[in-house]
Design a protein around this nucleic acid. Sequence first.
DNA 1: TCATCCAGTTAACAACTGTTCTCTGGAATT
DNA 2: AATTCCAGAGAACAGTTGTTAACTGGATGA
Lengths: 217, 217
Amino acid sequence: MSHTLGIRQAQKQKTRQAFLDAALALLEEQSLSSLGLREVTRAVGVAPTAFYRHFRSTADLGVALVDEALGSLHPMVRTTVSTAGGSEERIARAIELIARHVDTHPAHVRFIARERHGGVQPVREAIRAQLVRFAEEVKAELAKDPEAAGWNDDDLLMLAHLYVDQMLITASLFLEALEAPAQDRERVTQVATRQLRLITVGRSHWLDQAGRAATDT
Amino acid sequence: MSHTLGIRQAQKQKTRQAFLDAALALLEEQSLSSLGLREVTRAVGVAPTAFYRHFRSTADLGVALVDEALGSLHPMVRTTVSTAGGSEERIARAIELIARHVDTHPAHVRFIARERHGGVQPVREAIRAQLVRFAEEVKAELAKDPEAAGWNDDDLLMLAHLYVDQMLITASLFLEALEAPAQDRERVTQVATRQLRLITVGRSHWLDQAGRAATDT
DNA sequence: TCATCCAGTTAACAACTGTTCTCTGGAATT
DNA sequence: AATTCCAGAGAACAGTTGTTAACTGGATGA
């Protein structure tokens, strides 16, 4: 399909990546809507006009960053949700995964948390689309679980969204505690674990009270 | 304590409020970190330097907006959580409250959602402080409930945080559906209701599995 | 009534912004 | 070997930004 990519295209992709890296670094202390084109080119070390060879605007760059931050995360989430084991072990593994990801990719996590409700519409939309994909994937995995017997599609999807949102909240908490003492980080782990546990308890007793919900449509 | 406030101070507060209103309107399409001082004064219709009579910086203005948006909300939350009735009715009333608040104060809600993880540290901190207050108040109300018997303080607080975060998520969903057809808004109501219901189910069976959690500290 | 205060004005500053057009030199194609 | 292509450079543009200093005029308090 692709044969080693000519030296020209390779250079282009290299500077493109330099743009993404520089922007991500600059975005640790501001929002995308205040990120200047010249600011980025200055950080990369190229002329302002070089920017246009790669992106139409900073919003365009932002969308590319969304793909970089979330695009490669789908397999990870899939396997984490699907792997066997008791619910308690799965919870521990999920939170461990989040903590590790925040440690290794703090700027990416910060960017997503910040721009999810940020001031740039195309970026918000790109993030929303990715999160919907995550929810659908989680739902698909949940459906395989024997505990999902008797659940309808709507309820499975709402549970999946609950899990996804909870993962984002947890990631954001770990981010806030990144430079804090280990004690604080453990506290985050503990709270997040219990919240996930409570949701799981609710899940396992969901059908007990399904009768009550028969009136709302 | 205060006797009608001299005509001078009154005028000052009036223009100060004009600053807050103008900023809030401008922030519907951008983040605080990109909001310019001159931009605001232009919208208000005063000279740029007049800004300094009221705020040190746009970050300072942002903190004032946080107080305006969340400060007066505490009594509302308190009464909504505490009022009697079955859990099902309380859930419906809470979601109704959120939907109504988003309808009447969309810009405030958007501002909080946007700047909670935004690029301006003092504003993030101000929002965080307010949310912690909300969580503590919710916890205090939950503690009064007979269902809270046997719960320890840590678990009550983690449940309270779960509720607070869930309210923000719901508010943000209503916001996205603000200009959407009624069908979409009902869908949000339905999903939010079920998510809250699931959390409540988890809450009522929480103590059943408390033994399992005895190993983590 | 007169002196003080102070919210808002005016003018000016150096520095910065996004975007355009033209040019260049090495890679890619023929 | 000759030609085309195109990532990046360079210069210039009209506008914008935050901040300073010195001012005005009506409300305030003696």
